[in-house]
Computed example of a mutant assay.
Amino acid sequence: MEKIKIITDSTADLPEYIIKKYDIEVLHLFINFGDKSYRDGVDIDIHTLLDKMEKSDIFPVTAQVNPQTFLECYTSYINQGYKIVSIHLSSKMSGTYQSACIAKEMLETEDIIVIDSMNVTSGLGLQVIKAAKLKDSGFTAKEIESGVKEISTHIRSTLFFNSLDNLVKGGRLSRASGIIGSVLGIKIIVAVKDGEVAVIDKVRGSKRALRNMIEYIDKKSVKKGETAILLHVGETDILNALRENLEARKVDFIECEVGCAVGVHSGAGACGLFFVENY
């Protein structure tokens, strides 16, 4: 059986128990806050970050994992006889995937497979979990790559934000979408589509937003045998209602908290669901 290591980056936002359970290697993006730099989830947590953002006029920026970090990580595992499956956030959102590709090219080996998830946060997390489960089931690195790519195009998301300010400031949403979301109680539902954050609906009020999200989940239908991820940071009402709905329908899901690299853009008070649709 092949000796395989699954590697991802900190934007996968996976809880520590999942990382330990599947022995996943996580490389950390950086949060640059003024003249200080923090490793996502290591030197700073999401609650500290949000508190700092609330008290500061400085808007932090995120920095990709650099090629040298990948090179050192890959070299270590290759020297131990591993084959590597390395899965990372969308190349349309960060240069992290490109850094991984550069490191692979420098090592001139076919024992490293680098996958562009075309997703972020729990959409990436779902692909990492899929890879880890396939690895534990004895599949080869190439078979893991095929399994991950098979579900990647079927990952759906529906996400609610109390405020779109940070998405606009961070360049993830247009200013026009942000303005719409701040007037007349209009709530914008967003999702990750084609590797980028996109508006999928506009509704009035939180209750309608919740109905919209549940209707979307019902329409797409969560694929049996695949884990869904309920993602949140600070949100309560919609989070609790989504959780109750998933439990009532006996959907297999785990809960994850947004990490710092993603939290810079989400701000406080956000939640949603990532899942593999029935196909």
Rank of each mutant, 00 (worst) to 15 (best):
L231P: 01
L134E: 09
S90Y: 09
D43S: 09
H47K: 12
S146W: 04
E16W: 04
I46S: 09
H265L: 10
Q98K: 14
Q80N: 14
K83W: 02
I151T: 00
E196H: 00
L210Q: 04
T153Y: 11
I46N: 05
K193R: 15
G225Q: 08
L126H: 05
D116F: 00
Y279W: 13
V183C: 12
I31M: 09
V203R: 06
D165V: 12
E255H: 05
G178T: 03
D57F: 07
R204W: 07
I144L: 06
N162H: 13
D9T: 06
I155Q: 01
M1E: 11
M53L: 10
I84S: 00
D35L: 12
S99T: 03
K149Q: 13
E108K: 15
P67T: 09
F161M: 12
K224V: 11
M93T: 00
K20F: 03
I84P: 00
N212E: 15
I115Y: 00
I229S: 02
D23P: 08
A261P: 05
D252R: 11
R39V: 04
Y97H: 12
V199T: 15
D237K: 13
N32A: 15
V183D: 02
V222Y: 02
E244P: 02
L107S: 05
I19E: 08
S76N: 15
G269S: 00
A248F: 10
S206E: 14
F59T: 08
I87N: 01
V42E: 12
E257A: 09
G205C: 07
V251T: 13
G195L: 02
D218K: 13
A103L: 08
T62K: 04
L107F: 05
K55L: 07
Y74Q: 02
L231K: 07
E108G: 03
I46M: 04
E244Y: 12
N119E: 11
L50Y: 05
L49N: 06
V26K: 05
G41M: 00
